[in-house]
Amino acid sequence: MSEMKKIKNLKEFSTSADRFEGANLLCPGCAHSIIVREVLNATNDDLVLSASTGCLEVCTAVYPYTSWDASWIHIGFENGSTAVAGAEAMYKALKNKGRLKQPDRNPKFVSFAGDGASYDIGFQWISGCMERGHNMMHVVLDNEVYANTGGQRSSSTPIGASATTSPAGRVSYGEKRNKKDMVSIMASHHIPYSAQVSPNKWKDMVKKIQHGFAVDGPVFINAASPCTTEWKFDPKDTMTIADLATDSLVFPLYEIIDGRELNITYRPKNIVPVEDYLAAQGRFKHLFKDQYKYLIKEWQERIDDNWAYLQRREEARV
């Protein structure tokens, strides 16, 4: 294993030379690129990357430009994960045959994909990658919606969010189904490491990504990615929304080791009411009408319940 990059504090982190470039076409204030920067800057090793179809891919590979300073491939919506798995399998085979020109370089294999590409359309491909034991990391840029095609709901869209295929209005409060628990599903493949991260907690992120790079085997990361366009907030507030997400425990930060051992990695000093998180985003605006206010109470109960569940698992070491 190559030596882990030393990142004690933010000053030290800021000496990183980015391998992801600006003048991509992501919206101003998009969290996808903040996440990508934190992940890539966690290592100095070579990178083999992919992106599934979605905002990140579409906006960083606009012919004749690329925003990536590393090997990067895009094939389709569903199979970014398998593209990287294939490269990793080839790398392993060449290494075993002694045919690598630079056998000590220890590249890191990472696929990036949206929640649509991960929770829905690329689900079985990712499951296959995790099950086959590839030495790779899959990172979900979880903005809880099919953003790139105009805001259709995915199985990550939470209850009450207004999406273009589940719009809120006179007869509906928007999305009716609960968000899929992908971290648990992936952890159930008994992979060495799975975790939830959020870009506002950069240190927690870097620690988890470095741990993920250090273990041998598949790693699954779900990253909260506040989307200024679809969540409907001002671009300057991306980090404020991320803070509300982690501090209201709507996006709790935790990790699962070997699918068996859950650790909570961030406990907010002051837990923020879920109502504050909802109120900051246009996609939940209708919940504040009298007719739908009961849903805010249900939201809080759901989040409290999930937090209690995570704590029970942590305590019981399961």
Partner: peptide, 14 residues
Amino acid sequence: IDCQFCWVYCPDVS
């Protein structure tokens, strides 16, 4: 104060 918050949270490497 060179805290580098702006560096880490700038989405556009700017």
